[in-house]
Lab assay of single mutants.
Amino acid sequence: KKKYVIKVYFEDTGKEVEIEAESKEEALEAAKRLAEELGLKIKKVEIYP
C-alpha cells in the first residue's frame, strides 16, 4: 500500500514537520489539526508519493 510523506512548513517559526499518511486528504487533515494545536499558520505543504 502506498504511503504519502507530507512536509509541512509553518510561518514565523521556520519549523517543518513530516507526516506520513495513507492519502493526501488524510495528510492534509493531519497538517491542519497540527497547525491548530500549535496555534501556527501553514506556510507551505509539500507532498511526496
Rank of each mutant, 00 (worst) to 15 (best):
E16H: 08
K41R: 13
V45H: 04
K32G: 04
V45K: 01
E37S: 15
K32A: 11
Y48Q: 09
K41V: 09
F10K: 00
T13D: 04
L38N: 05
Y4M: 03
A35S: 09
E25P: 05
K44I: 06
V17Q: 03
A35E: 04
S23H: 04
K2R: 12
L40T: 03
Y9C: 03
K1V: 12
I19S: 02
R33F: 10
Y4T: 02
L38T: 05
I19P: 00
Y9S: 05
P49V: 11
E11M: 15
F10T: 01
E20A: 09
K24Q: 10
K2I: 09
K7R: 14
E37T: 14
V5C: 02
F10H: 00
I19Y: 12
E11T: 11
K7M: 04
A31Q: 01
E26D: 08
G14F: 15
K15C: 01
I42N: 00
V8N: 00
F10Q: 00
K3R: 07
A31K: 00
E25N: 05
E22R: 05
K44T: 05
G14Y: 12
R33N: 07
K24E: 13
E36P: 01
V17T: 07
G14V: 14
I19C: 05
L38S: 07
E25F: 09
E26V: 06
K41W: 04
P49A: 09
I47E: 08
E36S: 13
E29D: 10
E36T: 14
V17D: 02
A35W: 05
K43A: 10
K43G: 07
E16Y: 11
V8G: 00
G39A: 12
K32Y: 15
I6A: 04
L38R: 08
K1M: 15
G14T: 10
E22L: 06
R33P: 00
F10E: 00
P49G: 12
L28I: 10
G14E: 08
E16A: 12
E22A: 09
K1T: 12
A27K: 00
E29F: 15
E36V: 14
E25A: 10
R33H: 05
L28V: 12
K7H: 05
L28E: 07
V17W: 12
E11Q: 15
L28M: 11
K15H: 13
E16K: 06
E20W: 12
E29L: 15
E25V: 09
E26I: 06
Y48W: 12
V8L: 07
K1L: 12
Y48C: 11
I47Q: 07
L38K: 06
I6M: 11
E22V: 08
K43D: 08
Y9H: 06
I42A: 01
E20Y: 13
E18V: 09
I6F: 13
K24Y: 12
R33V: 06
D12T: 12
E18T: 07
S23I: 03
V45E: 01
V5I: 08
A21H: 08
K44V: 05
V5D: 01
I19D: 01
A21M: 07
K15I: 06
A21G: 08
A21E: 06
E18L: 12
E11P: 02
I47V: 09
E29T: 15
K43Q: 08
I19H: 02
E16V: 05
P49L: 14
K41N: 07
E11I: 15
K43R: 14
S23F: 07
E37D: 08
K32Q: 10
K3A: 12
A35D: 00
K3N: 04
K7P: 00
E25Y: 09
T13P: 11
K2V: 09
Y9Q: 04
G39N: 10
K41I: 05
E20G: 07
T13C: 02
E20P: 07
Y48F: 14
A31F: 12
L34F: 13
K43N: 08
Y9D: 01
K43F: 13
S23D: 08
P49D: 13
E11A: 13
K44L: 05
P49I: 15
K32E: 07
V45N: 01
L38P: 01
F10D: 01
V45W: 13
Y4R: 01
K3E: 03
K24C: 12
I19M: 11
L34M: 13
